[in-house]
Amino acid sequence: MTMRSLAAYLFVLLLAFPAFAVEPDEILEDPVLEARARDLSKQLRCVVCQNQDIDSSNAGVARDLRILVRERLVAGDTDEQVLDFVVARYGDYVLFRPPWKPTTYALWIAPFLVLAIGATAAGAVLLRARSKSGPFGLSVQEEAEFADLKKHLEQER
């Protein structure tokens, strides 16, 4: 599909269901469930939008999913079950927090790995710097003080 026809297509979708993020009539009576619903909606990606969660999206499908999430919660689903329900129909793509599975091990491990490698390298730099400086290295401040003292002594002499 060309970009233009895609744009036209999305445009149709938007016109068809004017709505504005979370609508008051969607909101649940129970504040605890509603808070969970809002939280879940923020983790779910709107499938027709450009990188938006369904909570802030005004697309029709996003609204349907928001209502669906609330229905599942009212029916007694756990957060996990609700997410699984949506993933079963739309795939991992809808999760803003990628699941922990073989294809995403690399993603979740990478920050730790980079940190470990970086820390090792930094440690090596520190150790090498120490071996060069020797046990009697003075700090810059001490060097300055020492120089002052020396000058002082020389003047007194």
Partner: peptide, 19 residues
Amino acid sequence: YPLFLEAITGDKISVGPPF
């Protein structure tokens, strides 16, 4: 990462604020 994964396995995922 979504691009890397799509290139290697064809899977599409999203990496968003929670990550």
